[in-house]
Design a protein around this nucleic acid. Structure first.
Lengths: 154, 154
DNA sequence: AGCCGATCCTTGCTTGGTCAAGCAAATGAC
DNA sequence: GTCATTTGCTTGACCAAGCAAGGATCGGCT
C-alpha cells in the first residue's frame, strides 16, 4: 500500500462519500452523546460503565486486566487507570491472581454491582434512542457482520 | 430521560447487542487504523489530512475557523491547534478576515495543496480497504441516512 | 458617540489516551 | 540452583482534544 506509484485511483462515488462523511460524524458524536447522557443521568462515565458491565458478566465477577482491557477497547494502561478510579469509588477491588502472582484480578464489589444495576437502564435507553432507533428496518445481523469485518481488517 | 423510575426495561435482543458491540469496536479501531495508515504511509495524521482536504474544497481554498472545525468534527480549540501545527509545517497560513476583524481564515498554501495531492490516494485506499469494502451489497444511501440520523439525534 | 450583549477565536487547565521504560514474578536452559 | 528471557501490570512522559474563561471586535440601541 505504501509503495503504489502515483496512479490516480478512482474517487469515491457520491453514495460512498456520503456514507464515509456520515460515519465520521457518528463516530464523533455518538460516544460523546452517550457519555454525556450517562454523566448527567447517573454520574457514571461511559468508560467506567463499560468496565463494570464487562466485569459483571465475567465468571465470579472478576477478570484479568488484559482481558478486561480488550473487552473495553482500552489500552492496558488506560484500563489500569480506569480501574484505579473505580477502586477509589469502592466499585471495584483488586486481588492478586492466585495462579500467577504477577497478575491481578479486577473484582466487582457489591457496591459496584449496585451502581451498575441502577445505571444500566440509562445506558440502554441512550443506546436505543441515539443509535438503534435509527436502524429499524435494517438487517441488524448482517450489519453487525459488516462492522465486525471492518473492525478486524488487516 | 433522567427521571424515569426504576422500571426494568426490556433488554437488547441478541442482534441488537451484537450490533452495538460491533459498532463499539469499529469506532475504536477504524480511526486509529486509518490514522496509522496515513502516518506510516505519508507522515500525515488523519486530523491534519482532514483539515487540508476540507480547505482544498472551499472556495478560494480558505475557510473560517468555526466552519472548518465543524467539517472536521473538531472543537474550535482543537481546530486552532491543528491549524497551528499545519502552519508550522508551511501547509496552511492564516489571514485576518476582511469583513470581520475578529475572524481568521485558514488558507491552504501551495505546499499544503501539494501535500494533499500526494496524500489523498493513501487515504482513499485506506478508507476503501478498512471500511467500504465490507459494505459491498448494502444500500449505501440508506445506510448513510441512518447514520446521519443517529449523529443528529436530539 | 458610547455602551452592552453577542460573536470569533485563543489560551490555560484538565482529562484521558498511547507508548516506552520499569519492576516483579514466572518460565525455561543449563 | 541460577541465570536469561518472557510475561503481566504499573508508572512516567507526552500529546491530542475538550471545556471554560478571556481578549478583541462587532452591531444594535439609546
Amino acid at each position: 500500500m505504501a509503495s503504489t506509484p502515483a496512479e490516480r485511483p478512482k474517487p469515491l462515488s457520491p453514495d460512498e462519500e456520503a456514507l464515509v462523511r456520515a460515519l465520521g460524524q457518528v463516530m464523533h458524536v455518538l460516544p460523546r452523546a452517550i457519555d454525556g447522557d450517562m454523566i448527567s443521568d447517573r454520574q457514571l462515565p461511559l468508560t467506567e460503565y463499560t468496565a463494570l458491565m464487562n466485569l459483571s458478566e465475567a465468571p465470579d465477577r472478576r477478570m484479568r486486566m488484559h482481558e478486561l482491557a480488550a473487552l473495553c477497547h482500552l489500552s492496558l494502561s488506560g484500563m489500569t487507570r480506569t480501574i484505579i478510579r473505580l477502586e477509589t469509588q469502592g466499585l471495584v477491588k483488586r486481588e492478586r491472581c492466585e495462579q500467577d502472582a504477577r497478575g491481578w484480578n479486577a473484582v466487582l464489589t457489591d457496591a459496584g454491582f449496585a451502581r451498575l444495576e441502577e445505571s444500566w437502564p440509562s445506558h440502554l435507553a441512550a443506546v436505543r434512542r441515539r443509535f438503534l432507533q435509527h436502524f429499524e428496518g435494517f438487517d441488524l445481523a448482517q450489519l453487525a457482520r459488516a462492522f465486525r469485518g471492518a473492525g478486524t481488517a488487516n
